[in-house]
Design a binder for these strands. Structure first.
Lengths: 226, 226
DNA sequence: CGATAGCTTGAGAATATTCAATTTTAGTGG
DNA sequence: CCACTAAAATTGAATATTCTCAAGCTATCG
């Protein structure tokens, strides 16, 4: 990942920007011209349906990209909003395509990023479709921890930068259910709340939490495929 | 879309292959070397979690691509299985990247395809997270119809090439719930079952069905984001 | 025409939502 | 720094939705 960021920096020499919680990186329906590489911070992507339903469709962190979903239609299909102070590199898409044409390793980087994004969104779907709420919340925490780990950040002490409502929206359940599930995980000793409020969650034993997801996954019985 | 297929045919001159229902295009964990462009037919992508949960994460049709999700890790993250007789173009990925480097419009095509795939998977998530089962089934039928329309195929007479179990898996509900929902939509006159069995579904009035989705979407009350 | 896989329907059980009350946390201005 | 306010989070009880289990039905394919 650091490798990717180095390549980008060398090849396109992008401008960078500091953002604060609540800042809008782009809005749904806005013309697509630019993609962003996250150097620091946490971001949410929010889609809206025609009839007003809102859905947080993805959470993004250091090393992730913002904006690829706008290529297809020439407009961004969702809002991108900072959940925390952060820093992003600003990369005009035409510059990026030029760079891709000239530098094969650059094209590889971009393709890998988009490919990973496709796979990631599918994993969200899998989680929502196959796990009961408690296991779903548990898996969310596991994947957040793994994600932090992968990026070289603290993984045993998560600071969720979102309300229970946001969390519930992302996970496909109500905020009350999120709250109950977190309380239950706490009672079971699988997580612990930090001193700085109940958005700070520590995971004493990640493998135990992962095991719990597996154990709790046999419900919600959709017949196996084929 | 036809434009895309013409560009591909001209630039990479791919081999094509006929497939039959049940044929496996690639398996999860198999090395990624090749992508496929669908000329005809219907395909499902099936992910499996470590603990054995199975999830149909996407359905693909004429004009869609198969395999991009394997770029990131060098291995396919899911199975791709034909649900019907069909025809696919076989395109070695290294040939494709070469072509992209030489032909800017080719790179544009590929980026648009991946971008569209990202957006599409997010819409699935939105549907599963924000709609009750009845509206979810209704929206699935709407989106199938729109999809067929877009591809120049009959949109008022759908032939689902999947079992209720597959459908339920894809939509995040049990096969019994799918069955009940379809029966209800039929009773309400929003759909009609064809003569050739209950996998054939006709939509007398698509806009009415779309309206129904909107009406049925106010449940499942996750608090709005921000 | 019989066997099998797929589909439908019902009844009871489990899970998640809704509504409401309370507590906690965070933010503001004196 | 502290009271005060508003927002966020927790928890309980009642309700609604969906799942599970079970039985019967309907296609389809040798």
């Amino acid at each position: 990942m650091l490798e990717v960021m180095r390549v980008i920096r060398e090849v396109v020499q992008p401008a960078a920007k500091v953002v604060r919680a609540g800042d809008v990186i782009f809005r749904a329906a806005a013309p697509f011209t630019t993609v962003y590489l996250i150097n620091a911070g946490a971001f949410k992507l929010v889609s809206r349906s025609l009839d007003g339903r809102e859905q947080i469709v993805s959470l993004k962190f250091r090393g992730d990209w913002l904006g690829f979903s706008g290529i297809a239609s020439g407009r961004h299909p969702c809002d991108a909003i900072a959940m925390d102070t952060g820093n992003i590199s600003i990369i005009p898409y035409d510059k990026l395509t030029e760079a891709c044409a000239r530098h094969p390793e650059m094209m590889a980087v971009i393709h890998e990023a988009m490919s990973a994004e496709i796979t990631h969104e599918r994993q969200s779907l899998m989680s929502v479709c196959t796990l009961a709420s408690l296991a779903r919340v548990a898996e969310f925490l596991c994947s957040w921890a793994r994600s932090m780990n992968q990026r070289g950040l603290r993984a045993d002490e998560l600071t969720l930068r979102m309300t229970r409502a946001d969390l519930g929206n992302y996970l496909g359940m109500t905020l009350e259910t999120v709250s109950r599930c977190l309380s239950k995980l706490n009672r079971e000793g699988l997580i612990r709340f930090g001193e700085r409020g109940r958005r700070q969650i520590s995971i004493p034993d990640l493998s135990r939490l992962e095991q719990f997801v597996i154990g709790g996954s046999m419900m919600h019985g959709q017949a196996a495929v084929q």
